[in-house]
């Protein structure tokens, strides 16, 4: 259901952008508003982590394990996509 909501919201945004329903001036301002919203959202996400004291208390005990798993996961998935992106881009050049 959540995915559907996201798609609808982005589709409305895409329509506004595609039909240029706002002036260039507003579009330029949007980028600044977007960035401010993004930083605010990240701040709130930080607050959500900070409120969770039980989890924060176990960071010193389990944090190392958690970071090792996440770093390994990120490194190998980046390598995986780096590998397959060649095939995706290769097709693009032909077209």
């Amino acid at each position: 259901m959540r995915i559907l909501l996201y798609i609808v919201i982005m589709a409305i945004g895409a329509l506004v952008g595609y039909k240029e329903l706002a002036s260039q001036k507003i579009f330029n301002k949007m980028s600044t508003i977007q960035y401010a919203c993004l930083l605010f959202l990240l701040f709130i996400m930080g607050v959500k982590i900070g409120i969770n004291k039980d989890v924060l208390m176990s960071v010193h005990k389990l944090g190392f394990t958690a970071v090792i798993i996440s770093v390994f996961s990120i490194v190998f998935s980046v390598l995986g996509v780096k590998f397959v992106s060649r095939f995706i881009k290769a097709k693009k050049k032909v077209v």
């Binding site: 919201i9 952008g17 919203c37």
Partner: peptide
């Protein structure tokens, strides 16, 4: 934010 992403995609 997703609305803004949509706008970027549409443009």
């Amino acid at each position: 934010l997703l609305f803004f992403v949509g706008v970027d995609i549409g443009r």
